[in-house]
């Protein structure tokens, strides 16, 4: 009985913590429970969640992707730039996604072909992505009144619910399906679990690593497109700020459901917890710097629980 209880706590302890936080704010923070505020929270965490899910794909294959935030900015600038110059929204979206995917593939090739550890390789790509973003924009954001069809992607609503929430759900469900129900998914998991064993079992582990990093790039690209649409502008640093919070969401997610390992529901709850925390603190009128301090504490606490996977990804070639 106690073992069962301990196991439950191990798997859902953090989620219960998130729930406790929710209840705390429901009581302590005025207006927190307003349906419009709850939708607001869901909408705000969408970028974070999509990036976090992408990052967890890379981490599943035991590689870190430290470029996703700046790659998101690059995709934002690419999509926004094309819209700004009156190209069709379809082309702009495709180009944004492609920019993200390309960066991901490059990350993958750097890690698998050049044997550069992902910690370093993706950081380098991150720098390149920033450089290209500034090259494209000259540092000046593309702004303007853009086509409604394009703006709907990030600002639209369906049955009173922001479209962004649907994007997040679609990506979360599809990712969960891929990882849990498909051959490619389990091959990525095997690659991350035991690279050598997977290779001996005939799994193309190098390809799986490229795939994991490519998916991370692709979701970063999608986030960039969504940001361009939501902000109707494209700043060369638009997505840079999501780096730490998205990683924090993944790390928080790794303390639950499948403790020690990146997982989609965990990342989702992690992002939700961070979103609730940020929103609740603002509603309570807490000073701005408190959020940063708490975010750092979350990262330390999470990693102390699930260090091995991250360390392996960070320091293995």
């Amino acid at each position: 009985m106690t073992e069962k209880y301990q196991n439950f706590l191990r798997r859902y302890g953090t989620a219960l913590g998130g729930l406790a936080l929710f209840i705390f704010f429901a009581i302590a923070a005025e207006n927190f429970l307003n349906p419009s505020n709850l939708l607001n929270v869901l909408k705000q965490i969408s970028f974070l969640t999509i990036l976090a899910i992408g990052f967890s794909f890379a981490l599943t294959t035991s590689e870190l992707d430290l470029s996703f935030a700046t790659v998101g900015s690059l995709a934002c600038v690419v999509a926004g730039g094309l819209i700004y110059h009156q190209f069709s929204p379809i082309l702009a979206i495709a180009a944004g996604l492609f920019a993200g995917l390309a960066a991901g593939v490059i990350n993958g090739l750097i890690v698998t072909r050049l044997k550069v550890p992902s910690l370093i390789g993706t950081l380098a790509v991150s720098s390149i992505a920033t450089g290209v973003s500034f090259w494209i924009t000259g540092g000046v954001a593309f702004v303007g009144r853009w086509a409604d069809a394009f703006l709907f992607l990030g600002r639209g609503q369906l049955v009173g619910i922001p479209v962004l929430v649907f994007w997040t759900l679609i990506i979360a469900v599809f990712s969960l399906f891929v990882l849990k129900q498909t051959r490619i998914g389990i091959h990525m998991i095997f690659t991350g679990e035991n690279d050598e064993a997977a290779r001996l079992g005939g799994i193309p582990t190098q390809k799986m690593k490229v795939l994991g990093l490519s998916i991370s790039g692709l979701t970063a690209g999608f986030t960039g497109v969504l940001l361009a649409s939501t902000l109707s502008s494209a700043d060369p640093t638009a997505a840079d700020g999501f780096m730490l919070t998205a990683i924090a969401a993944v790390l928080l997610g790794m303390t639950m459901i499948e403790p020690g390992h990146p997982n989609v529901p965990g990342s989702l709850i992690g992002a939700l917890t961070i979103g609730i925390l940020s929103n609740g603190l603002i509603l309570m009128g807490v000073e701005y710097y408190v959020q940063d301090i708490i975010l750092g504490m979350i990262i330390i606490a999470s990693v102390s629980v699930s260090a091995s996977t991250i360390t392996k990804a960070a320091f293995s070639v």
């Binding site: 389990i186 091959h187 998991i189 095997f190 679990e193 035991n194 064993a197 997977a198 079992g201 005939g202 799994i203 390992h261």
Partner: peptide
């Protein structure tokens, strides 16, 4: 892969 299930390991790859 110790974390994964018996049948998953048998069918690995």
């Amino acid at each position: 892969a110790p974390r994964l299930q018996v049948y998953q390991n048998i069918f690995m790859g």
